[in-house]
């Protein structure tokens, strides 16, 4: 974990209100694991006061990438940054995805992305394909419409199978990506070999959590939450998790990736 002033290499609009930013941050790149995030101070003046968290989308040598959608004032300011400017970033933070070990019986991996949820899953797919090239990865990408689908080509270039779902049916399956997941599940006898990783809006993750319970396969979900400190100190970002009755876990430190089974969905 370091706090550095990182040089912006590129900040490119890749779709309507969606941007990809590349930063020179070798230390963070070396340490980052899929599912971890960086906490970005978008402006030295305020408001906005607090940092904004973004999953690491990709690491390439000295360079890290984030992928984001303009949601409010913070991301709006970020979208206007130009290559050559510097950005105060803190990271890598949080607990990322737990990759299947080489000795595990896992043979099938499904990644489920909703909207900008592709951000952390591309880094995951790259890491798995380097560590375990024999594993087959199926990626399900969901969006409202064809124009908002992200990263399809990047996943294909890695050799992943890709299926898409759009809510208005302009491309691929018409409906929610969680419904598409249920259709793509392997036959029941093969489920012990399956693991699912999901990132996207909380409603989507909740549904995928339900499906994982019903079909009994391991599932890790990456939660999105507004954060203050990002390092586990302020306890502002907690989610309810199972305990003797229940307990609270910090999205920024105990997550953002959780086993779907340990969370209490409300």
């Amino acid at each position: 974990m370091v706090q550095v002033d990182a040089k912006i290499l590129e900040n490119r609009e890749i779709g309507s209100q969606r941007y990809k930013m590349a930063l020179s941050a070798p230390q963070i790149g070396r340490q980052a694991k899929p599912g971890q995030f960086i906490h970005v101070r978008v402006s030295k003046s305020f408001p906005p006061l607090l940092r904004r968290p973004f999953s690491v989308h990709r690491v390439q040598g000295q360079k890290i990438e984030i992928l984001y959608k303009v949601m409010g004032k913070g991301t709006e300011i970020l979208s206007r940054k130009k290559g050559g400017e510097y950005l105060d970033i803190l990271g890598p933070l949080g607990k990322g995805y737990q990759l299947p070990s080489a000795t595990s019986k896992i043979s099938d991996i499904i990644l489920v992305a909703g909207g900008t949820g592709v951000a952390s899953l591309l880094f995951l797919a790259e890491s798995i394909s380097v560590a375990n090239p024999e594993l087959s990865i199926l990626v399900l990408i969901g969006a409202k419409n064809r124009e908002e689908l992200l990263s399809e080509g990047d996943f294909r270039r890695l050799g992943c199978g890709v299926e898409v779902a759009t809510e208005n049916g302009t491309k691929g399956y018409k409906g929610l990506v969680s419904e598409l997941l249920e259709k793509c599940l392997p036959l029941s006898g093969d489920k012990p070999k399956l693991i699912v990783f999901a990132c996207g809006p909380s409603e989507m993750l909740k549904m995928i959590g339900k499906i994982s319970r019903k079909h009994r396969f391991p599932c890790q979900v990456s939660l999105e939450e507004r954060l203050a400190c990002g390092v586990g100190a302020c306890l502002g970002c907690v989610v309810k998790a199972k305990g003797s009755t229940y307990t609270y876990k910090r999205v920024c430190k105990d997550g953002p990736v959780f086993d779907a089974g340990e969370l209490i969905w409300e």
């Binding site: 006061l49 502002g236 970002c237 907690v238 989610v239 307990t247 609270y248």
Partner: peptide, 23 residues
């Protein structure tokens, strides 16, 4: 102490509102 139910924190104009509840 478990602390309060989330949401516990929101950013306001140049400030932060919190209700952690002494977790």
């Amino acid at each position: 102490r478990l602390g309060n139910e989330p949401p516990r924190m929101v950013e306001t104009a140049s400030g932060v509102l919190n209700s952690i509840g002494l977790q």
